[in-house]
Design a protein around this nucleic acid. Structure first.
Length: 401
DNA sequence: ATTCCACAGGAAACAGTGGTCC
DNA sequence: GGACCACTGTTTCCTGTGGAAT
């Protein structure tokens, strides 16, 4: 009698033991008691913030570092420690943490700042007001409550990008807010992934925001390995991961500017794959598979999240691989005709192409063809099958794939 | 030495949405 | 109910460009 294949599989999975004992620890946001290899940075940051405890205004602070170097974790940890110290005193310190990437607009960023200060919808509506009005209300609340604010702006480079688009000088006003506050203070802590973003800043802002700067250097492969070992000890059963796998994992993450988040992600996914394959240990091949899976997942989510015309354009590039903008534009126009969509102008399409190029799904190369003009030739960096598979469920594209 | 192609990509303006305020 | 605001996605208009062809 042949056994049911599903049953067989389920039996096998049940009898195989789990390699991972605590998944929570395999997420980067899990904060261990100590953050490894960042003692000097922690000390520096604490130094600059100490004036708060002495009831005076500390320097504004800029923290730099590539993704996954632990910047945000360190800042959050220190601030919560400071807050604990002053909790019982009658000297209120308020910590406000805002991530610029989570807000699409400048307005939204200021509003979420206001919400943290306890301004409700009626006092600070989330649309409709002038930005200067929002600002006025924020300062009024701070002043009235005699708050001492530490305003942490994560990914401040993104904020600078937003500001430069609208031409508003909110950052400047923030850095000078103390001149308008009499019974309260405002300290800014900016966190940035981009070491060059200062160049795009108004020089008046740099002088006050960049009073103190702290750089988080990239983790070395050895440090990554130590971090991994710490987490593995907590999250995997003993001996579940082969030494060579840890080495490979640290090396792969180290190659990408020492990103600890990526290293931990890699080991987690590798563990899951190994479990599914009912392997007793996590081996090098699992790390490799994990790396590939993470890449592919990133690509499919990116593809899915594009709006209609961008998707059409990606399909057009797929069909007209290696062709010039003009040819891609005609391909796109005929696709529009088939699915009865109004086509956009060529100017908009060139813009979209460069936006998609930024995400890495397509690459473009400028070609000078003499009398045949200048153009940019695009091609997909991912496999056409990937595009087809991702889009095949969408009814709109039924006729064109 | 000029000309001239086929776009790239900047700047500005505009339409539409969803809101406040008085 | 009209003036005003922020913001997005778009169109319109424009200037610039490297090198094959002349």
């Amino acid at each position: 009698m042949e056994r049911d294949p599903v049953d067989k599989l389920l039996d096998a999975v049940e009898s195989g033991k789990s390699l991972i004992t605590n998944r929570e620890i395999l997420h980067f946001t899990y904060i261990p008691d100590t953050i490894p290899h960042r003692n000097s940075e922690q000390e520096q940051i604490t130094q600059t913030l100490i004036p708060i405890l002495k009831h005076s205004r500390p320097s504004n602070l800029l923290v730099y570092g590539k993704p996954g170097t632990g910047k945000t974790l360190v800042v959050k940890k220190i601030l919560s420690q400071i807050q604990k110290r002053v909790e019982k005193s009658n000297f209120p310190i308020k910590l406000v943490y805002v991530n610029s990437k989570e807000e699409t607009t400048l307005y939204g960023l200021l509003v979420s700042f206001g919400r943290e200060l306890g301004l409700v919808e009626e006092k600070l509506p989330s649309t409709g007001l002038a930005i200067s009005e929002v600002f006025k209300r924020l300062l009024k609340t701070i002043e009235e409550n005699h708050y001492n604010i530490v305003f942490v702006i994560d990914e401040i480079d993104h904020l600078v990008h937003l500001v430069s688009k609208t031409g508003n000088d909110v950052l400047y006003q923030l850095t000078r807010a103390n001149e308008r506050l009499k019974k309260a203070t405002l300290t800014l802590v900016g966190i940035s992934n981009d070491l060059t973003f200062k160049e795009r800043l108004d020089p008046r802002v740099i002088s006050s925001l960049g009073e103190e700067e702290i750089v988080f250097t990239n983790y070395t492969v050895e440090q990554l390995k130590k971090i991994l070992e710490d987490r593995i000890q907590l999250a995997f059963i003993k001996g579940a991961i082969e030494e060579s796998a840890i080495n490979l994992c640290a090396a792969m993450a180290g190659r990408e500017h020492g990103d600890a988040r990526r290293a931990i992600d890699l080991i987690r996914v590798a563990g899951e794959i190994a479990e599914r394959e009912q392997s007793n240990t996590v081996k090098e091949e699992h790390i490799r598979k994990a790396s590939q899976k993470i890449e592919e997942d990133k690509e499919t989510t990116a593809l899915r999240s594009y709006p209609l015309h961008e998707k059409l354009l990606i399909i057009a590039v797929m069909k007209a691989a290696g062709l010039s903008t003009g040819e891609i534009y005609s391909a796109y126009k005929s696709l529009c005709k088939i699915i009865r969509q109004k086509e956009l102008t060529q100017r908009r399409i060139t813009q979209m192409l460069s936006e998609i190029e930024l995400s890495g799904i397509i690459t473009g190369k400028i070609i000078h063809q003499g009398i045949h003009g200048r153009t940019k030739k695009y091609k997909l960096t991912i496999s056409p099958e990937m595009v087809k598979n991702t889009f095949k469920d969408e009814l709109t594209f039924e006729d064109i794939l």
